[in-house]
């Protein structure tokens, strides 16, 4: 399964990179979303997918054998990454909106000429 997920992440990365290499800013933003999802998945895979158990301590127990579950730290990291990704997404969209409003273009190659000299 790891192999398949690794290939899937590779595909996501290929698509993301292809998108952010475009000149149209909307595609670049889509690319950033794809890349952030792919990166989260890498962390998830690094935490291990050996087990399907939920990282909860049973009601009648005091603690849990760490062997039984996947690394909960990876989940915590991704949770934070998702939240921050949400913030970044909102910000980047606002930036894009304003960028379009100011420059009137969606071609990133035009951006280099708006530098103030």
């Amino acid at each position: 399964m790891e192999l398949i997920i690794a290939i899937f992440i590779g595909l996501l990365f290929a698509c993301g990179v292809y998108l952010i290499l475009r000149r149209s800013i909307v595609k670049v933003i889509l690319g950033i979303f794809v890349l952030s999802n792919a990166t989260n998945l890498i962390i998830f895979l690094a935490g291990g997918i050996k087990s399907e158990a939920v990282a909860f301590i049973p009601d009648d127990a005091e603690s849990l054998n760490p062997e039984l579950i996947n690394d909960p730290m990876a989940q915590v990291l991704i949770l934070k990454a998702i939240v921050i990704g949400l913030g970044i997404a909102a910000y980047i969209l606002a930036l894009k909106y304003r960028y379009f409003e100011v420059t009137g273009t969606h071609d990133l190659d035009q951006l280099k000429n708006t530098d103030q000299k």
Binding site: E2, A6, I9, F13, V17, Y18, L21, A38, L45
Partner: peptide
Amino acid sequence: DAIISIITGLFITLVIL
């Protein structure tokens, strides 16, 4: 760009494995 992105994807897969 497609070639570059495919190389990147392959590279990432290999790194993960």
